[in-house]
Design a protein around this nucleic acid. Structure first.
Length: 256
DNA sequence: ACGCGTGTTACTGT
DNA sequence: GACAGTAACACGCG
């Protein structure tokens, strides 16, 4: 549910609240997606001090002082909660208990949020790091429409359905454009739109939700927003119904 | 009160 | 193999 800017805000707040704490014990009420045994997880992480929490693509990564990393992918409905003494949330997947009695829990009613001990390093660039050169090269051989490309985590990491629509509107590129047909000048606008849309969103989320570690904030979205009928520049917002909805306007140029 | 929404994988079919 | 389309996961929320 949360997308890159939300995750960015979560990681910032979790870092602030949890850095320096030491893991006492990890409980795993629902190990469906965990990549190691509960025993191994505890063997590796118990006693380690939490050093850093940051975002990697759509995952949150927790790094500990011996260098081990614990990754959390929230998928559609994963939610994080901090607790002081006892976790009373429904649908708990995994609970980190710290030596001061406090803790962090990941819940998911669907059970598909995914905790991973020491996830593999990926060489796919993060959305915020992608440059024009990379996209130009990568898109030259791709006929898939540009929205699908933005959502493809093997090409760019971190963009989800809602922000893809916002970004494409800002770059004035139709989501149905054939990726290989988009000219270099437009790719430059696309790269700028990716950065500005995601960074501005993070700022507004942080500003109005000081301690946020779960949920999502969407009220400031201009295009992917069922409450809005027109873009900021006055064009009617159209909706394409597929397995995921696409919001767009005729202000966006179609390359085909 | 009921319809909408979000990521990924797995699968069919062209 | 590239690409398109769809279902499944199963609820919270307004």
């Amino acid at each position: 549910m949360p997308e890159l800017p939300d995750l960015q805000a979560f990681s910032h707040n979790l870092q602030r609240k949890l850095a320096g704490k030491t893991v006492k014990k990890i409980e795993v009420p629902n190990a469906k997606k965990l990549n190691v045994s509960v025993h191994e997880l505890n063997e590796v992480l118990s006693g380690q001090k939490l050093e850093k929490i940051y975002r990697e693509g759509k995952e949150l990564h927790i790094r500990f002082d011996k260098g081990d990393v614990f990754g959390l992918h929230l998928m559609l409905h994963g939610k994080l909660f901090l607790f002081d003494t006892k976790n009373e949330n429904k649908y708990s997947i995994i609970e980190l208990h710290f030596d001061d009695g406090s803790g962090l829990v990941l819940t998911d009613f669907q059970g598909i949020a995914t905790p991973t001990l020491n996830p593999e390093k990926k060489d796919v660039p993060d959305a915020l790091d992608a440059d024009v050169e990379y996209l130009k090269k990568r898109l030259a051989k791709t006929k898939t429409n540009i929205k699908t490309v933005l959502l493809d985590q093997k090409i760019l990491r971190g963009i989800g359905n809602a922000y893809a629509d916002e970004i494409l509107w800002h770059a004035r590129i139709s989501p149905f454009s054939v990726s290989s047909k988009i000219p270099g000048s437009k790719l430059k606008e696309l790269v700028q739109a990716i950065r500005s849309v995601l960074e501005d969103a993070e700022k507004s989320i942080m500003k109005s939700n000081l301690d946020i570690v779960n949920g999502e904030v969407r009220d400031f979205m201009n295009i992917h927003n069922s409450k809005k009928k027109h873009s900021p520049t006055g064009a009617a917002i159209r909706i394409n119904e597929a397995s995921r909805k696409t919001y767009y306007t005729d202000e966006q140029e179609l390359f085909e």
